[in-house]
Design a protein around this nucleic acid. Structure first.
Lengths: 240, 240
DNA sequence: CCATAGCAAGAGCACTGCTCTCTTTTTTGT
DNA sequence: ACAAAAAAGAGAGCAGTGCTCTTGCTATGG
């Protein structure tokens, strides 16, 4: 029931949105630490105490922004995936994999502070509410979706060396939870690749590559291509 | 000239150290965002304004803690490296590589807030001063050192597929800057592995693996072993 | 038409980083 | 040894923060 019943509810949702917009503006401009409820209220021309009718605390406002950020980056990943047809060759699957990674990277570089909000240090007191766990999985799901399609098309070369059994157990549980048909070894490795992708992104966004990596685009592209290989998408050579 | 000339300098360095100790205590307890100069001063029984004689701002104190944290994790990595003799077989080289990664992980799990300080979102206004770049490289250098030794012993199988030329150029520059003799392809890939290692660590420390990976130890071990393979340390099988 | 529930505003509390001034202590130069 | 200078501490104060409480106002529903 998201029916807006009266002018009051309409105003409420509009103001809630306006608060988030302004908060996101300050977040993008100055970072999460300098996001101030009072400043948001000031910019919106309302008393700071009035803001507490919409968000019971600063942390709640930040949580709302976190969910939105997860949604935004997840949407970017899914758009990149859906922009290309289901893979018929290994090379197409690798291309799709790289397209998702690149889309996530583009979003991260365009929204560094929002990226830091979700993939940097967690905010002081707070632990992720269940609301955030589902949108947080979207990027990972998009990546796994590529592998699922590739596997369905018989394009996946399952890695030879075995995995510890408890790792396989985790992978089986995850596969069941996500309802995806993939060999547990592939699934386990794809979780690793998922984390490692964000290692590359965090180092670039947070400046750890300064004075180390200059050719960022080709470096990233090469790295995620190798990452694809590590989960079973063994790509043939390409030039450049 | 670090000769302590009088009682004044001695007291100064002692108080400086006491401030850092108390600040680190608060950092470990509550996180960087809740680290307060006034609380530190209060705990030390001095006026908050007196603290500014030792650190001109909160950011400067944080920077000092950052440098210390980089040193601590770098020291952990180097100790793990030096605890094992120079590798004579590929398996030994892989073991050394994994030992370094595990040492870094142990440090990160034991000091999550300090880890977040250096590998999480950078603090609001601040960009890393040159003081931090040198200690920040120590973990990476330890990892590259393993590869250097392995290469010198002829244990390194250089990856076959070529790299984009500007990536190779970056790797050559980096090799010259570090004064290390390694094929640029290995060097470039090791930078990727370095970043990816911290992707694994950040996801574990920051809770992204919650309800996804339960068997953390074997998962990590398997992942860094594969990482070693991706930089040319192709390990023979080992059981569980 | 009126009671009620939702909303806005202001004052206020406890806290923060930081600056300024004033006093005390220690070092240094003659 | 004594005065001048440098360094350090203490306190008040400013501007800002998150958050709460009380006081009015306004739109909604019986």
């Amino acid at each position: 029931m998201t029916v807006i019943r009266g002018a009051r509810e309409r105003a409420r949702s509009e103001i809630t949105e306006a608060i988030k917009v302004e908060a996101r503006r300050q977040l993008a401009a100055e970072g999460a630490a300098k996001l101030s409820l009072r400043a948001v209220a000031r910019e919106l021309g309302m008393a700071s105490s009035a803001l507490y009718r919409y968000f019971p605390s600063r942390d709640e406002l930040l949580t709302a922004l976190i969910v939105d950020a997860y949604d935004a980056v997840g949407r970017a990943a899914e758009r990149a995936r859906d922009a290309r047809p289901a893979p018929a060759t290994v090379e197409q699957a690798v291309t799709r994999w790289c397209a998702i990674c690149t889309a996530v990277r583009d979003w991260a570089l365009a929204h560094p502070h929002e990226y830091a909000l979700i993939y940097g240090s967690p905010v002081p007191g707070y632990q992720a509410p269940r609301t955030t766990t589902e949108p947080a999985a979207r990027v990972g799901l998009a990546l796994i979706g590529v592998l699922r399609d590739a596997h369905a098309a018989g394009l996946l070369t399952e890695p030879a060396d075995p995995l510890p059994e408890d790792v396989v157990a985790d992978a089986l549980a995850l596969g069941a939870q996500l309802g995806v048909e993939l060999p547990p070894t592939v699934l386990a490795r794809s979780v690793g690749a998922w984390a490692q992708l964000f290692g590359l992104l965090s180092f670039e966004v947070f400046g750890q590559f300064n004075r180390v990596v200059e050719a960022r685009d080709p470096f990233f592209h090469q790295a995620v291509r190798q990452l694809a290989g590590s989960v079973g998408l063994d790509a043939p050579q390409e030039e450049g």
